[in-house]
Design a protein around this nucleic acid. Structure first.
Lengths: 185, 185
DNA sequence: CCTTTACCATACGCAAGCGTATGGAGGAGG
DNA sequence: CCTCCTCCATACGCTTGCGTATGGTAAAGG
């Protein structure tokens, strides 16, 4: 134990703390000394587990990519149902979160090519999935592609806008109107 | 003149340079010493025009709000036409830009209450305008509100995603499909 | 019990940036 | 020509954060 009574940390502890800070305050706030203080250790620990800050950031990206790629999709598939039910489930699941981590990764991606590459892969995977749902709903490939992208962008925009102005403005509360429009052939 | 032959600067010169840096590299990159170097002066100039960095950032926000609130809307109204034509013009104008400045303001708003307040006002104004367009298209208030918000979010998401994966994935190239869906009653 | 391994503290040098203090320089107006 | 006003340069102290060097400690295994 160290002087404050905490147990010793491993690589994963640092990564989880890093993702937490990233989701909360952005990539610029992910700094080794403040992070060490938050974890109750000194940066001696950090530089034992990671070569430098850059290597740490790459590790954060890998962790995010691993969990962000399939999380929602597998949950939707687990619930099952027809395409319409799965699309509805997808909305519900996505809108139940805050999207903060994804948004910070997206902001990060505007300035870092590694983040951009990771984000592109994740976006691609998700888009393909939604596109397949629309095709299953009976839309032609081009139509499905367009609607999938539009929906995906709207979800991103939902999180980008943050807290809505009024209570009736939240996408989730106008769910049925939009859903109806999207699945209507 | 200073030693590099440049003329002296006023408040507006600093603000414009600040917005440029903000749009390019985000609020974290807006720092007085690098900015001074880019302008060919020292920070002595900066602290003559502004009390401190915070006051400068607020000035940037005011400038952005002043130009972002009405720019697109006035241009759309200038072109005129019926609601459908104006909605189409709005898409065209918005999609012709990069949205970088707006996106950086949005990222900034996640951590700063002043930025958040300014952004909320701008979003509110724009949303109301789009909502009015949909009402003019014959949609009921609730329906218009839902569609307006959905469209607005999708546009934000478009910029948040940055460069698209494939050439056929860009919203602007699937314009007609989406537009058809949006205005269909 | 004694060594090795894994993890951490401490102390250091360095760079970037904020804000301040002070001393000009150059044009405008009397 | 002299003075004031506007704008800027220079130099300083301070803080935060990166990365390194080195020594120390607790636990595990022989």
């Amino acid at each position: 134990m160290n002087k404050s009574g905490n147990v010793r940390l491993n690589r994963q502890d640092w990564i989880l703390a890093g993702l937490k800070t990233l989701a909360g305050d952005g990539i610029e706030a992910v700094r080794v000394e403040p992070l060490a203080k938050a974890l109750g250790v000194t940066k001696g620990s950090f530089y034992w587990h990671f070569k430098n800050r850059d290597a740490f950031l790459k590790a954060l990206l890998d962790e995010w990519r691993a969990r962000a790629t399939m999380n929602v999709i597998t949950e939707v598939d687990r619930r099952g149902g027809d395409a319409q039910a799965r699309l509805r489930a997808l909305f519900t699941i996505v809108l139940s979160g805050t999207g903060r981590l994804d948004m910070e990764i997206r902001a990060w991606a505007a300035k870092d090519r590694h983040a951009r590459a990771a984000l592109l892969r994740v976006d691609r995977t998700r888009l393909d999935y939604v596109e397949a749902l629309f095709e299953e709903l009976g839309f032609a490939p081009e139509e499905a592609k367009a609607r999938a992208r539009f929906v995906y962008q709207a979800l991103i925009g939902q999180f980008a806008m943050g807290a809505p102005a009024g209570p009736k403005d939240r996408l989730s509360e106008q769910f049925e109107i939009i859903f109806e429009m999207l699945v209507r052939r």
